[in-house]
């Protein structure tokens, strides 16, 4: 009984402390929990690998900010790297002001790592990859892109005229985009599904935070989205696929976090079990009295 009382009265700060340790320790002493690739992740990977011809275009939507960066940033990196490794062109687009900074950071990182590792196949900003300027309007922007992408944005995120850029060659609208992967933790994913996929038939893949992942499963089943990376785990699976292919050099941000993630989950499961036991025991006691 003392144990039940202890659980019921436990100061939350002890839980925070143990959780922090659960996460820090695996970083220092990696455990290496096994990881399986799930089907929604594999289908995005396979689509980029097999279904897009060389010179094709992958559009990546960076609609997140630092608050969900931990989950979505690694996704942006892996998808951009994968596309470059197949000699595809990569366009970043953002519907929120904060997304521009995120996308620029990814572009800079990916280009640096790629060019360091591939001296004979250098990639250039404006030729192989770029960011479309931020334009307000969200759904209006998505719809306008279906008519004319260059006219929608005029400029890239660095102030260059889009019509002068080699990366934009022969790109008019969604018909010239082979795949769109939307990275967001908010309902903006639906905007892409409703307008770009629904109206223009654009192939949309989703990269989202784990919070929203459950919500978007129904769009996978209805085939409105071709695949999904859900949370850090999704990013880690993709990193693994890329390393197997031999084209990923950067720090595997997501993969190294997986041990920490798993140990935190084990801690939570224990908490939930203990909490429930305490709840039912104390309920029974109250009822008995």
């Amino acid at each position: 009984m003392r144990f039940i009382n202890f659980i019921n009265k436990l100061d939350k700060r002890w839980i925070y402390l143990v959780l922090a340790l659960c996460i820090i320790i695996p970083f220092l002493f990696p455990i290496g929990f096994p990881m399986k690739t799930t089907a929604p992740v594999k289908s995005i990977y396979d689509f980029i690998e097999d279904s897009i011809p060389e010179g094709g275009v992958v559009l990546i939507g960076a609609d997140y900010d630092p608050s969900t960066m931990a989950e979505l940033h690694p996704m942006a990196k892996v998808i951009a790297t994968h596309a470059l490794s197949n000699n595809l062109r990569v366009l970043f687009v953002t519907l929120y002001p904060q997304g521009a900074g995120m996308a620029q950071d990814v572009i800079e990182n990916v280009l640096r790592e790629w060019n360091n590792s591939n001296p004979d196949n250098q990639k250039e900003l404006g030729k192989d990859i770029t960011l479309l300027a931020y334009v307000p309007g969200v759904s209006a922007v998505v719809l306008k892109m279906g008519e004319d992408i260059i006219e929608t944005f005029n400029e890239d995120g660095y102030g260059n005229k889009l019509s002068d850029l080699e990366v934009m060659k022969e790109i008019k609208n969604y018909n010239d985009i082979d795949l769109m992967v939307e990275l967001a933790g908010s309902a903006v994913v639906l905007t892409w599904l409703i307008y770009a996929n629904g109206r223009y038939g654009l192939n949309v893949g989703i990269g989202t935070t784990a919070v929203s992942a459950a919500e978007y499963y129904s769009y996978l089943q209805s085939k409105q989205a071709i695949g999904m990376l859900g949370g850090l785990k999704g990013a880690a699976e993709y990193e693994n696929l890329l390393s197997k292919k031999g084209v990923y050099w950067g720090r595997k941000d997501a993969t190294v976090g997986m041990d920490a993630q798993s140990s935190a989950h084990i801690f939570f499961i224990i908490l939930i079990v203990l909490g429930n036991i305490a709840y039912f025991v104390s309920k029974k006691q109250k009822g008995g009295r």
Partner: peptide
Amino acid sequence: AFGYTIMARVSLFIGRIQFLL
């Protein structure tokens, strides 16, 4: 959804710890 939310919150924390360490 609850399970996924926990996973997401942990991921965010992991991102910060990674940055710090």
